[in-house]
């Protein structure tokens, strides 16, 4: 039973990191109907900047997270400006191909020697891992950190989207670009902002991931990126609560598979879920199939 509870906590830890990535996918999809396949690589860049922050530049780790989030927000906005905005009203497949191009670019450019280099790096954690035993269940300070940070970010995002003017603008743009324009919303700026926020969340996820699973390299974003994308689809792409729900389910499914069936099957299970969702309920758990209104 304790073993099971520990796995639940491990699953929660992984799920929350996925949630931070999945939110970026889902927000961007909601607002421009684009699957931003470069998002997993922004997560990777976030992990590296955070790592450099607290190991090479000597920043205190919370500041390293913040710096990483800011840098990645700029990176996200830059990607949108260069690779997506010129294609905004082109066929969707065109922007998708551009996204895949950006993804490869980031992976291989960052692998160059003068960037992050092609090798694995071991992350020296900025603090020691401490374990606590609560009623027989062991949890670590890293898990607590991930839990607190992720929950704060998620609550903050929910507040931003549902309660602020920028959030109202984002939701209106997501409904229809022209309608938003006629309300006086600066659509380009709103989209840019959305990319920035999504990238910042992924960066935070990246740094936390690097602290929790302390080994990073330039292709580390692919798998978590794909799984977070699956999570977003599972919950209902375009829906923020859906991304959170999907990510938590993905985290549990993966960890439970590894713990009770076989750790080699964890990725297979994750993508089986994707295929299953697409076959059975393509709109996702919380998604509604919307009838066309004439």
């Amino acid at each position: 039973m304790d073993y099971f509870m520990e796995q639940v906590i491990n699953g929660l830890q992984l799920g929350l990191v996925y949630a931070l990535i999945a939110l970026g996918y889902t927000m961007v999809y909601g607002i421009v109907k684009l699957i931003n396949f470069a998002h997993g690589d922004v997560f990777m860049v976030g992990a590296f900047i955070g790592y450099f922050g607290f190991s090479s530049w000597g920043l205190p780790w919370p500041l390293a997270i913040l710096v990483s989030a800011l840098c990645c927000a700029c990176l996200g906005m830059l990607i949108e400006r260069i690779a997506y905005r010129p294609l905004r009203y082109a066929t969707r497949i065109v922007a998708l191909i551009s996204a895949i191009g950006v993804s490869f670019f980031l992976e291989y450019f960052c692998s160059l020697k003068f960037m992050f280099g092609p090798n694995y790096r071991v992350v020296q954690r900025p603090f020691d891992e401490v374990y606590w035993s609560i009623g027989g269940v062991t949890i670590s300070n890293i898990q607590v950190l991930i839990f607190c940070t992720a929950v704060c970010m998620l609550v903050g995002l929910q507040y931003l989207v549902m309660r602020t003017k920028m959030g109202a603008a984002m939701r209106t743009v997501s409904f229809d670009h022209d309608t938003a324009r006629l309300m006086g919303v600066n659509v380009d700026r709103t989209i840019s902002f959305t990319f920035g926020i999504g990238a910042a969340l992924a960066a935070v996820g990246g740094v936390l991931y690097a602290i929790a699973y302390p080994q990073i390299w330039t292709f580390m974003g692919i798998m978590p990126g794909l799984k977070a994308f699956t999570a977003a689809v599972l919950g209902g792409i375009g829906l923020i609560p859906g991304a959170m729900l999907g990510a938590l389910i993905m985290g549990q499914a993966e960890v439970m598979t590894a713990a009770f069936i076989s750790s080699q099957l964890r990725d297979a299970i994750a993508f089986s879920i994707l295929i299953l969702v697409l076959l059975v309920r393509p709109c996702g758990i919380l998604g509604k199939t919307q009838p066309e209104k004439v």
Partner: peptide
């Protein structure tokens, strides 16, 4: 468009939106 809205020229679109 948003600069035009700011001037008080308001467009209620077709199909209500």
């Amino acid at each position: 468009p948003h600069q035009i809205v700011a001037m008080g020229l308001i467009h209620v679109p077709e199909g209500r939106k």
